[in-house]
Each structure stands twice: as structure tokens, then as C-alpha cells.
Design a protein around this nucleic acid. Sequence first.
DNA 1: GTCTAGTTTGACCGAACGGTCAGACTCACG
DNA 2: CGTGAGTCTGACCGTTCGGTCAAACTAGAC
Lengths: 216, 216
Amino acid sequence: MADDLDPRDFTSDDDGKRPLTRIQKVNRGKILEAALDVFSAHGFRGATLDQIAAEAGLSKPNVLYYFPSKEAIHAALLEGLLDIWLAPLRAIDPAGEPREEIMRYMRRKLEMSREMPRESRLFANEVLQGAPRMGAGLSTDLKTLVDEKAKVIEGWIAEGRLAPVDPHHLIFSIWALTQHYADFDTQVRAVLGPGKDPIEGAAPFLDMLFARLLAP
Amino acid sequence: MADDLDPRDFTSDDDGKRPLTRIQKVNRGKILEAALDVFSAHGFRGATLDQIAAEAGLSKPNVLYYFPSKEAIHAALLEGLLDIWLAPLRAIDPAGEPREEIMRYMRRKLEMSREMPRESRLFANEVLQGAPRMGAGLSTDLKTLVDEKAKVIEGWIAEGRLAPVDPHHLIFSIWALTQHYADFDTQVRAVLGPGKDPIEGAAPFLDMLFARLLAP
DNA sequence: GTCTAGTTTGACCGAACGGTCAGACTCACG
DNA sequence: CGTGAGTCTGACCGTTCGGTCAAACTAGAC
């Protein structure tokens, strides 16, 4: 199970400490991969170190040799993931074509719901419970980024290149509609019944929805 | 805190047992009210009986006098809430005006996000983690209801009274967009900053969104 | 007032959990 | 092949949690 470590580098300690051993890199990767599985499926409180250790193929004390605590594993995951998660929003280009930029953002977020559902659920679990373990600074950084992009969208609207919509709620709607398919996957599949990937059906629907919403 | 018991009747035992005592009604109500608070804020696993008991103003053994287990409290909450939760969807009238019916459903769901955020988060917590404690039959009943209403919407589309959209994903989009404001309230408020109720801003946005989406 | 069914609680239990520790093992470099 | 830093583990600890129980304490019908 833990064989398919993906190449993303979660093992950033970068506190100026000495370079990581090969074994350290591998095992910290295994732990974070397992922790992502367990935390996203059961929430922070519902996850146990034994579960994580078992899924990582390590003993519990060995896991605690690489991370000082359960909290630390969770924090490392959140921190490492935040940049990836917000990258598509950052990529909105003020110089681009408005509707194209927003549609691209929406499509990229939908792709992420398909390809990184565990990451989506990890954040969802955290936010649902009031984000007690997510740095308050995170909310500050997030607000800064969103406000910046909202300004860009407002500019586009002022130029008449976009329908006049509240930019903040537009961004919320993209989050809500795309992450829904990752976070509530169980419900979506229960309703649609067995068959194709729900996101395949969602893609054209969301394309139409945002096309109609954004037309000036 | 537990003084404002709302009039909704959660205390349905109705297994044909003898009628409930006055004290039974009051205390079961207190427990379920407290449990809704605690479960919705921390998830099933994150909630503790001591927390629930404290918030209900009862001792832990006393709580377990009224409910056989933590699971039973959770199950009672879910069961009692499901009808309320799906009522607006059930209320969609095949004989009504299509766009009006759907807009009404959306608005009612948004209202519920404002007035019953704890209930929304209770379900969200459960579904996020794969709905392990929600009767599999629930998914069956839910599917049945959604399929029925999807057929109604398809009929409307066939008559050309509604834009041709996938009815299932239309329903998902209503769920996603409205429940987002309850489930991710923390994030929404962090981004918008302090001030008015986020849902006040969401209402006109969602009105415009669905008006544009549904126009034939 | 009495008596009983219904209610409440302090004390306690076993299991699960996060975390510790001393010592055993192993890898890589000279 | 020797050695020390780095890696790993079985046994254990204190706490928390869900749940039990016997005994004490009402509420209310007669």
C-alpha cells in the first residue's frame, strides 16, 4: 500500500538542521502518506497513532522517532499542503482573459477534487471543526490572497468584461461546487448509484453554470 | 444554556413503549440539544460523553440512563433530523412553476444554513467520514427521493420550461452552495472579515446564479 | 403519609490512546 | 572490520474514555 509514494516533497524540515538521511526521507514520506489517509478519513481526533503506524508499515515508537507528536504530523501535513491547495487561485492572471481565467481556476479545482480528494477532506475536517489546529495566520494569509484576487475580479467587472457578481461569493461558489465532489463523495455516489466517476458528469454542468453566470 | 429547548420534538421513542414521563421528555431533550452542540462541533469521535453530560447539566451515568450508549445518542439525532433536513426537497411541487420551485428550494436551504448550522455540520461530519453511522438505508431513501425529484426536473426541461441541465448535479449544486455557508462558516468569516452575516451577501449572489443557470 | 416506580450519583472498571525509555539493532564510512 | 551515529522496538506509564453498578434519592399516585 505505502509503495506508491508520490514525488511531492512533504519532507521539508528546513529548520536549518543537518541534511536528511535517505532513510529519514523515505520514512517521513511513508508516515505523512499514511497520516493523510487516516486523518482525512477519520479526522484528527478519530485518527490514532497505531493506525498511522500500521498503515505506514512502522512501529508506533518508530513513528514518534520521526515526529514528536500526533499534532506535529497533522501540522506538517497541513503546512505542506497549503501551498499546493492555493496554487490555482494564485495562478489567476490579472492580465488574462477574465472568463477564461476564472473557468480555468474552476476546472483546476475540480481536477484537484478528483486527484486529491484526501487533501480536500483533510482541510474540510479541519475547517468544519473551526480550524483549531490551523494557524490563525493561515486565515490571515488566505484572506490576503482572496482579497487580492477579489480586487482583480472587481476590476474586470468595472471594465464590463464580466457579469457584476460579488467576487468573494464567486470564489466561495467555486470552492463549494468543486470540493463538494471530494468532501461529500460518499453522498454523491450514493445518490448517483454505481457507475462512472461523478466528476465526469460534474465537469460539463459546472462549465455551463459558470459560463452562464459570468457572461457580461 | 440548555434553557432554550426548541419546540421540535426530538424525543420520539415510539417503539410502542409506555408513554414518556415529563422528566424523561425534558432530560432527553436536554441531552439531544447538548449532543447536537458537541457532535456538530467536534465530530462523533471528538465528542465525549462527559462534554455532553456537562453541557446538558446532567451527570454522565444519568445521561446513560436515558440513552444506552454514545452511539445511540448520535443515531437518535440523525434520525430525528433527517426528515427536517429533506423536507424542503420533498416540498418541490411537480405542478408548480419550475424556476420558482427550484429557487424556493435553494432559498429554503440557504435559510436552513443560517438557522440550523449545527444540524448541517452534524451531517457534514458524518458524510465526510464515509457516513459509517448513517443507516445504509438512508442512502437508499435519499437516492429514491433525489431520483424522484430529478425526474420531475427532467420533465420540466423536456417541456422547455428550464435550461437543459443535469438534474442530479443541479441538486448537488444547491446542496454545495448553501451548506457551504454553514459547514465552512469559519473559513467564510475568516475571508470576509468581521461584519454582517455572510449569508446576507450570499442570498443575492445565489439568486442571480440560479436565475442565470435556469433560464431556458 | 406510604410505597413504588422512576431517577440520580459516586465509585469503579477495562480498553484504548498518546507518549516514554532503555536497550538492541543496523547502516555507512574510514 | 570496527565503530559510532542513526534507527528501531518491546515493555511500560498515566490519562481519558465509554460504560457499569449498587445504593441513595425523589416524584407522584393512592
